[in-house]
């Protein structure tokens, strides 16, 4: 999986590309932890190019969102592909996480 990080005002946008499985999820977890330690509090996870997410990936999404909230921040998820949207729906993540149709909308929701 490839992670591209960019900043828009005080929002950190992580564009995820590829498969978020048990092998890739530690990489995302470490990146999120490092951003949090570096002071990031508003994070968008752009899933437009994310083709697959396993339970390990969902755990990192939930854990990351929880850590951000505990630190006074917020996470927003954007542009779920049909495969990822289906997994979010099955697991009830659509009901507890902030999900937006585009990265622009997700970024706007945090500013």
């Amino acid at each position: 999986m490839e992670i591209t990080v960019s900043n828009q005002n005080d929002v950190t946008v992580l564009a995820l590309q590829g498969r978020l499985d048990g092998l890739a999820s530690p990489q995302l977890e470490q990146r999120l932890d490092a951003l949090l330690a570096g002071g990031a509090r508003k994070v968008v996870l752009d899933c437009a190019a994310l083709t697959y997410v396993s339970s390990a990936g969902l755990r990192v999404f939930l854990g990351g969102a929880k850590k951000l909230k505990s630190a006074g921040g917020r996470a927003a998820f954007a542009a779920l592909t049909p495969a990822v949207h289906e997994v979010f729906e099955l697991s009830g993540f659509l009901e507890v996480l902030a999900v937006h149709p585009t990265a622009t909308a997700a970024t706007a929701s945090l500013t």
């Binding site: 499985d21 048990g22 092998l23 530690p26 697959y52 396993s54 339970s55 390990a56 755990r59 997994v87 099955l90």
Partner: peptide, 17 residues
Amino acid sequence: LFHLGRIDTDPAALTVL
């Protein structure tokens, strides 16, 4: 085992990592 990073799952299969 999942939370210890030994396995992963999706709706189709359980994989030993």
